[in-house]
Structures are given as C-alpha cells and as structure tokens.
C-alpha cells in the first residue's frame, strides 16, 4: 500500500475514522469501508447521480470526491435518512408513487430530492426559474422538479412518478 492518510468524518451521525488509500473515493469509503451499500455506483464518473449523498447538507456525487479531502465533513446517506422504522417523507412518497422499478438509482434519487427541496427552500434558482423571481423559496413546480432532478438518471424511466413523489413532499 502506498500513500495513506488518516481520515475522520461523520457518517449518518456516527464518527468514522480510518487510515485510507489516498485514491479512495468517498463512494468507495462508504460502500467498501463503512459497509453502507445503499449508496450505489452507477458510472463512477459523475454522470448518473446514483452515488448521491449529502455532504454537510448539500447533495454531491460521492464518486468524484476523494475521501482524504472529506476529513471533518458530515455525510448523510440513504441509510441515515430514517431510523429504519419510520420512513423519511421522501422514502414514503417514493413508495406511494411507485417512483422506481429496479431501485438501483433510488437511494441517489431520494438523497438528491432531499437536497433539491432544501435548495429550493433556500431560494436557489435553477435553469428554469424565472429571472425576475422574487427572493425567498422557489416553488417546486413540475418543470422545476424535472430540471432539479436531472442529475439523477433512471434507466427504468420512472421520472414521471419521481416528479410526483418529490412534488408531494415539497408542498
């Protein structure tokens, strides 16, 4: 083993500390070292969104982040969204709207939706937000959700239901 670095971060509320190969991505840390296999590797190049997690509350592609650079951060994965008995409202909505088929992109979709709703509440615009939109939360209309969720590919084609699920929770 070559260059290793000690990394400490907080994953789903728990401290995770490990000496890691510098080449390890956050995604591989989560899957192979923290055994959180809910986060998925779809492309490993930031082109599909299946590995989406929340980094200090913001949604990111964990495949393109080096674990060594994440020292001191707080990570939330799909496993951290609910206690296992009561589902997170988005998890519930995804079930209710049948917003997935194979389910492989689903953890990333749900983490992404958590981020998307937070971003809209914080007033962050998207490519389809009106230029003269007033300050304050952005209403998650259908076009807004479609645009904001476009970083998460779903090959089964569950987008129609994903949009319904996200909209229900965003209301």
């Amino acid at each position: 083993m070559g260059a290793m670095t000690a990394v400490t971060l907080n994953v789903n509320g728990e401290r995770f500390s490990r000496e890691l190969d510098n080449r390890t991505t956050l995604l591989d840390l989560l899957r192979e070292h923290a055994h959180l296999s809910g986060v998925k590797k779809g492309c490993d190049h930031g082109q599909c969104g299946a590995c989406t997690v929340l980094l200090d509350g913001r949604r990111v592609n964990s495949c393109l982040l080096l674990a060594v650079a994440m020292d001191g951060t707080e990570i939330t994965t799909i496993e951290g969204l609910s206690d296992g008995t009561t589902l997170h409202p988005l998890q519930r909505a995804f079930v209710d709207h049948d917003a997935f088929q194979c389910g492989f992109c689903t953890p990333g979709q749900i983490c992404s939706a958590v981020g998307a709703i937070a971003e809209a509440r914080a007033g962050w615009p998207s490519a389809v937000t009106a230029h003269d939109a007033p300050p304050g939360p952005v209403e998650l209309t259908v076009p807004e959700v479609r645009e904001r969720m476009s970083g998460n590919l779903c090959r089964c084609g569950a987008y129609v239901n994903i949009v319904s699920a996200v909209r229900e929770v965003a209301r």
């Binding site: 969104g49 949604r59 990111v60 592609n61 393109l64 971003e119 615009p125 490519a127 937000t129 970083g151």
Partner: peptide, 16 residues
C-alpha cells in the same frame, strides 16, 4: 453568470 452556471452539469456537480 447565473444562467450559464445553471445550464451546466447537474446540481450535485455544481455543489462540488
């Protein structure tokens, strides 16, 4: 500036 940024990549990538 805002338009150009928001037309590129995805929210996840723009966050990083």
């Amino acid at each position: 500036v805002s338009e150009a940024l928001l037309s590129g990549a995805s929210a996840q990538l723009r966050n990083a």
